[in-house]
Structures are given as C-alpha cells and as structure tokens.
Design a protein around this nucleic acid. Structure first.
Lengths: 185, 185
DNA sequence: ACCTGAACACCGTTCAAGT
DNA sequence: ACCTGAACACCGTTCAAGT
C-alpha cells in the first residue's frame, strides 16, 4: 500500500470512530469523508460498504470482551450476580454507539455479514460464561449461546432505540437471568 | 370533507396496507401515492408523517388484541401455557408487517408518538393477562406490564430484523416466561 | 378546499479525469 | 496506484399553479 493510501486509511478510521460516536452508526458517510479530508470515492475504495467501515471501527473496542468474560468466570460470584455482571457488560459494550445493538445483534449467526467475526468473539465469550454455569448444573439446557446473545442483544436494541434508562435494562435482564437459571435459590 | 378528499383518503389507506404488507413499514411513500393514483402532496395532506399513516393502517388489525387477551384469561390454561399463548399472539400481531416490531416497541410508553394509542391497547391487554396471574401469586412483582411489553417486543424486533424462524422466537419466549413466573412447577 | 407534479434537499454510490 | 469531486440515482417533502 502506498504511503498516502495508508495515511488516508488511518485518518478515515480515526474520524469514523469519532463521527460514529457523535451521530451513531447511521451517520452520513460523506461527513466522515469530508472531515477526514478525502473524497467520497477514496472512502469507498478503502471501505466498499458501511459495514466494512463499522467492522474496522468496532474491532478496537471489541477485544476487551474476552478479558471481561474471563474475569466473570474467575470471580466465583453466585450465578445470578455473575450473569448480571456479564450481561450488563455485554449490553454496555454493544451499545457504545447508537445503532450498535441492532447492527451487531442483526449479524449474530449470519456468516455473510462483514462484522461476523466480531459477533463470533462475543458469542464465544458468552459461551465461556454460560459453560461455567452449565458445568454446575445451574443453567437450563434447552437454549444455546447464540440464542442467549440474541435475547440479551434484543434488550440492548430496544433500550438503544427507545433511549431507555439503565434501570429499565437491569430489570429486563433480571427476568432473562431468572429464565436462564434452573431453579431460584 | 369533500367527496373526492374522502375517496382519496380511503384509497390511500387501502393501498398503504397493501404496500406495507409487501415491502414493510419503511416502503417508499411515493410508491403508495403513485399506486393510489394521487400526487405526493395529497398523501402528505392526509397523513403529514409516515407514523400518522402507519397509525391509521395498524388500527384495522389491532382491535382483535383485546379478544385474544380475554380468551387467554378465560382459558384456565396453566400459567406457562397461558403466557406462551399470549406472547406468541403478541409477537405475531406486531410482526405482521416488516418493521412493525421496531415501530411499535419503540413507541411503547412514548406518549408523543402518533401510534401511542395502539401501544396502549396492547399494554392494557397485556396487563389483563398478567393481572390474572398476579392475583394467584404466580408472577414476580418487580416488573410492570410496560417493561414486559418491551421485553417481548424486543424478541419480536430481533426476530423481524434477522428473519429468525418461529422456533427461535419460541425458545426466547420460554426463557422470558420462566423469568416472569415465581417458581417453576 | 383540494389536487397535481415539478422542484428542492439530502445522501449514497459511481466514474471520468487527474496526479 | 490512488485520489478527486462532479454527476447520477433515489427518496422524502414542499409549494406554486391549477381545478
């Protein structure tokens, strides 16, 4: 890659992260191009679709997911608290940009999506947390981690689209958690 | 209202129902105007915003909701089956048009929305079903019917946006149901 | 009063012309 | 090889001109 191309690539990513954070993942592509000081065609050359750009931006704040999941697994919290802590982190992470929950949850289990790899990271982390509870027989057995991601993602989607407060998210997550655990203590 | 205006109003509604059903609630407004044989300005005169049009179209298939809820309440099904039956009907109803779950769930509890009245009908019906279970002490007490509508609506949103099969919806609803009931039988 | 449809605005996407 | 930005397409919304 030529030096100017590399410079543009990096500048676009930097500006995109900023614009997505200000205006959400549906922000006009042209805003990003203008603020990055490149022509629209240049942006399309580097990132043919919006999802390719989102994929690159999301990468930077998705790699802490594994650490968070491992922390929860290692924490020895009771099942209810462990799940709440994990799901809360999950929702917070995918809700970092407006439109994020819908984009990410919509791509869950959809191998054609440019952001599929990021979804798989989330799903695998979720599977580790669920697995540690399953071993102890705490978890219902008729649902897999993909569907749990969709269900928790669903909560994040309505919270994001409706601007719901954290308490509302918490109370919905508590219902989901009780539904996932085998028997109430 | 003048005779031609009334005729246009009815024609627009008829065509809108058809187009929304074919292409979803985000279908181009102009498609509806063209197929109804009116100018774009006429459609905007009758329905200033898309949501006003959606509100009018949704009205026709929202009035069976009360009957469905009353059937479930009168049925004497066990709690789990009663809720599954009701939530399944709830999801089916709001998913009739693509984009419906997001529109309706997004307007839940938002009094400014043109479709707020329809949401209130849904919420009130849901409250009746939940109330009949609450009386018998079957239901957790720390969540209200609005949040239950949002949670079940959330399932419908991801199912609609991801094109998920009915089995997937069922398994997510089963988790929600177990989370809402006080103790597993 | 109500209707029409051209006109404007906005934004995504492409591509001929440049370097 | 890469970049630019004008041009095109699409769609929502308005409004001057008609009846």
């Amino acid at each position: 890659m030529r030096a100017d191309a590399l410079k543009n690539h990096e500048k676009i990513l930097e500006v995109a992260a900023q614009v997505f954070s200000e205006r959400g993942l549906d922000a006009p592509i042209d805003d990003i191009a203008t603020r990055a000081g490149v022509g629209a065609g240049t942006l399309y050359r580097h990132f043919p679709t919006r999802d390719d750009l989102i994929d690159a931006v999301v990468k930077s704040w998705m790699n802490q997911v594994d650490a968070t999941a491992d922390d929860v697994v290692a924490s020895d919290l009771p099942p209810r608290e462990a799940l709440l802590s994990w799901f809360d982190a999950y929702v917070t992470r995918i809700s970092r940009n407006k439109g994020g929950p819908a984009k990410i949850t919509g791509a869950m289990g959809n191998a054609d999506s440019p952001i599929y790899t990021k979804c798989e990271t989330l799903r695998a982390a979720n599977e580790r947390v669920l697995g540690s509870l399953r071993e102890r027989g705490e978890l219902r057995s008729d649902i897999d981690s993909l569907e749990v991601c969709r269900l928790v993602g669903a909560v994040a989607v309505v919270a994001d689209q409706g601007g719901l407060p954290p308490e509302s998210v918490r109370s919905m997550l508590n219902v989901v958690i009780d539904g996932l655990l085998n028997s109430p203590s």
